[in-house]
Design a protein around this nucleic acid. Structure first.
Lengths: 252, 252
DNA sequence: CGGGTCGTTGAGGAAGCTCAAGAATCGTGG
DNA sequence: CCACGATTCTTGAGCTTCCTCAACGACCCG
């Protein structure tokens, strides 16, 4: 039923992957700086310093001081909110080129989310003051940033819609599809979500419990929609999943 | 138990409230243009045209073409998402100075939300092209916009946390408090949410049903936390509500 | 005063949670 | 290479929360 070994390659990001050249190309690939020239990006790169984190390591905690902006250069990062009930909320999983930290350059003195290295990763860090200076000098970058954040607002609204109006089965199907589309890689198992992903992660993303996720994934597997194992998932029947993720209650 | 008449004044926005002067002061009060000089705002105002809507009237529908940006000048506007199950999701209620429409200036060709006039209201409309031109000319406005949208992203993340992790009672208490803080006015009944607000609205904001909201509000009323009636709510015991809205399960 | 909208309350049922135990997988040290 | 502990996943049973369906009462406006 399940493959034994995880097909997800938990390769470490070796330090040399984080050379200045990589930093440059990551920044240029970022929505913020895409409209700028190579020279401009090169000047901006000087404002960022690079820090490596091992998988599982905290990058910053909810409530700590926040006067900095971070960009994922390599690896993936989890953005979560801790809750007193112990049940964490997983807001976003960010891949290379995404940014996080004190998005709001304004008053916001503390982080509103906890960021954790999901895989080994390399993070570029700039202070918000430096970032503000860059945006002032490059209006195109400011507009690009605005568009980027507006896109994430849309995505957040999507999630709110899901949580408000749809049952867990649909939310889970939708979440798996979204992950496959963002981080998918064609593999023997199907369209593999190329990232370690536990049932707990999926539960925290869909606002449910590990047990419920496990049960649903078992039936998804039985129905030939997905393949899955310990900390990995792959989409097998994309159309089938999509039917679950959009209201089509199967007729007959 | 309940007051008979609604203490919320459903005053119409008379057309003369939407003079050019009002338009100017609203735009200047907007987070986007706050950092600009009076003269700059005056020039920008020319890009906006003004349209009035009666309470209940649709301003734009989900899925229609979206190449425009709208600012609330007077009144309040509801941003909703329709769902096939019939259960609508109420994402935000916007007051004067808030903006909506195609936040994402980019590709986004259709509206992601339905906007409805909650009260009679006056809306300022500009095309996204004009808006983009304004931002390009005024980097300070672009940065202010970025901060504004980032703030709304935070708020959306708050909502996601609520929906993912907390029971309905807490979500409802929290939502009422937030509304009272944003749109509250001291009145005989307590801190009155100065806006017509049905049980259905509250249900759509908290991801639950009218019946559940009604039941909970009845007990809130019995416990002396709120006062409420047909399409209005007022906070009586702020601390009590806040205790419900933050994990403090009453001891003993 | 009568029709329409909005709110309240009840009874029954279903979705999903909690608690609990056991199985599979992984990493590590011998 | 194997054994062990730790983590992750699975499955079951009972129960709670909340939804659904339904009826009725209150308020509003013409």
């Amino acid at each position: 039923m399940e493959r034994r070994q995880s097909p997800v390659d938990l390769q470490s990001i070796t330090p040399q992957e984080c050379t200045f050249d990589v930093l440059l190309s990551v920044l240029h690939g970022t929505p913020f700086f895409a409209p700028l020239s190579h020279e401009e990006v090169q000047a901006i790169a000087a404002s960022f310093r690079q820090v490596d984190f091992a998988a599982g390591e905290p990058i910053h905690h909810y409530g700590t001081d926040a006067r900095r902006l971070e960009v994922v250069a390599a690896g993936t990062v989890k953005l979560t909110r801790p809750t007193i009930t112990g049940r964490d909320v997983l807001l976003e999983i960010l891949g290379p080129g995404s940014f996080f930290g004190s998005v709001d350059l304004l008053g916001q003195a503390t982080h509103a989310e906890t960021a954790t290295a999901n895989t080994d990763c390399c993070i570029l860090i700039a202070s918000t003051d430096e970032f503000r200076r860059i945006l002032q000098a490059h209006p195109a970058a400011a507009i690009a940033s605005l568009e980027y954040v507006a896109g994430r607002l849309q995505a957040a609204h999507d999630t709110i819609e899901q949580l408000s109006a749809y049952p867990v089965e649909r939310r889970l199907a939708s979440t798996i599809l979204k992950l496959a589309d963002t981080l998918g890689r064609e593999a023997d198992e199907g369209l593999l979500v190329d990232m370690p992903l536990s049932r707990q992660d999926l539960a925290d993303m869909t606002g449910t419990t590990v047990e419920t996720v496990s049960r649903l994934m078992s039936t998804f597997r039985k129905d030939g929609l997905i393949q899955s194992g310990r900390r990995w998932v792959a989409v097998v029947d994309r159309d089938g999943l999509e039917r679950l993720a959009s209201d089509e209650i199967s007729p007959i």
